[in-house]
Design a protein around this nucleic acid. Structure first.
Lengths: 222, 222
DNA sequence: GTCTATAGTCGGATAGAC
DNA sequence: GTCTATCCGACTATAGAC
């Protein structure tokens, strides 16, 4: 049986993706291992066999999300770190930050992230130990890296604590288009987010982020 | 038995608030009418009596959220509309928009909004007919109003469709501090959002929003 | 209006066949 | 490893006492 580089067999992969979907919609308690197993084409006791319990599957699902998000963001993170190191200028840091934000926005408007987001947002608003898995995977590193870029861009105007709040606010501009998806569709009259809409969203986020970072640099009066 | 102006008796109010909490955490299917009734100090069959069914209670809970959010935002909305009408200048429109955003941010950092947010975000990412109730209550009106301010601030530089995307991105800066609460706490090292933290968050959002709107007015090069 | 009692379904965990 | 069978608890909805 062929295994992926991550060591996950196709059957486990299918079970994990189904689990993410069900847990994301109904939570740990609300989701049913019977329904997850049936949707993945197997039976409930295979969950017990592979993951020990319902909660074991839940934590494995969180790890699977962290791995997949890491795969999506790693190239952009490498490119950004390269841009960041290319020059000491704050312009280089702005570009490095925009590289990450734009890739993050692209991920969030992509349909693939819908199931991840349901799981993650649930953990954000009512954390369990699965949040440690999610935050330890990529999020924490990303927040720290982006905040350090903001500090550099500000040239000492804002301290680390303020930079972290600024980072979250900037990220929130992208997050809203996934988390408030129903409002997006109502407000725009769209049936779904077509490629043109996705481009328009990313352009708005880039423009806003540039404007915010310009003000951080002191280009405009506060 | 004294009734509130909204015509909701204390017992119903307690039942509805409990329902919002349980439904927000576990969803329509996951939540248990027995548990909701017990936590509200009554029995399951009183839910059937008052709301017909579990889903009837769910819709009533959505309406209750819409009403409460309306109460919180109405004064700011009235003040904002007054500011907006006070002058034709785009500065007046900026102030009017900031009034709404700041009040919205204040609501989102307040602990009270945690239970509402769990319910609403669930409906955002997996809408049912309860979302019609939520969106029809306040959200739709607010998005339309803020977008019209953005159009006015831009002085024709962006059309209505782009203004709506910009509005959502701006709102997202506030939303993130509720929706990604666990990340906020990890990133800052806070145990909770103390008054000083709440002030810092709102200041960042105001500064960013001013910077974004300045760029919309063409104060800085795109 | 609020309660208890009951019917019928579905949940997770486990044991054991193969 | 994957399945069936079974245990026992919890669920919604309803009927009916008071």
């Amino acid at each position: 049986m062929a295994r992926t580089p991550a060591g996950i067999a196709p059957i486990d992969d299918r079970l994990l993706n189904t689990a993410i979907d069900h847990f994301g919609r109904q939570g740990l308690e609300g989701a049913s291992t019977r329904a997850i197993a049936a949707a993945a084409g197997t039976t409930m006791s295979s969950i017990t066999y592979h993951y020990g319990s319902k909660q074991g599957l839940y934590l494995a699902a969180a790890k699977h999300i962290a791995n997949q998000m890491g795969e999506r963001m790693t190239p952009a993170l490498a490119a950004s770190e390269s841009q960041s190191r290319a020059g000491e200028s704050s312009e280089a840091a702005v570009d490095a930050l925009l590289t990450i934000i734009d890739r993050f926005a692209e991920m969030l408007v992509h349909p693939e992230s819908a199931v991840w987001a349901r799981f993650i947002v649930r953990e954000q608003m009512e954390p369990t130990e699965a949040f440690d898995v999610l935050y330890g995977g990529l999020m924490g590193r990303l927040v720290g890296y982006l905040s350090s870029l903001v500090v550099r861009i500000s040239a000492g105007r804002c301290d680390d604590a303020e930079a972290r709040l600024k980072t979250l606010a900037i990220v929130g501009q992208a997050l809203v288009f996934r988390v408030a998806r129903a409002t997006l569709l109502r407000a725009t009259g769209w049936d779904d987010v077509a490629p043109a809409g996705s481009e328009a969203i990313r352009r708005v986020i880039r423009e806003h982020t540039r404007a915010i970072l310009s003000s951080v640099r002191g280009d405009i009066a506060p």
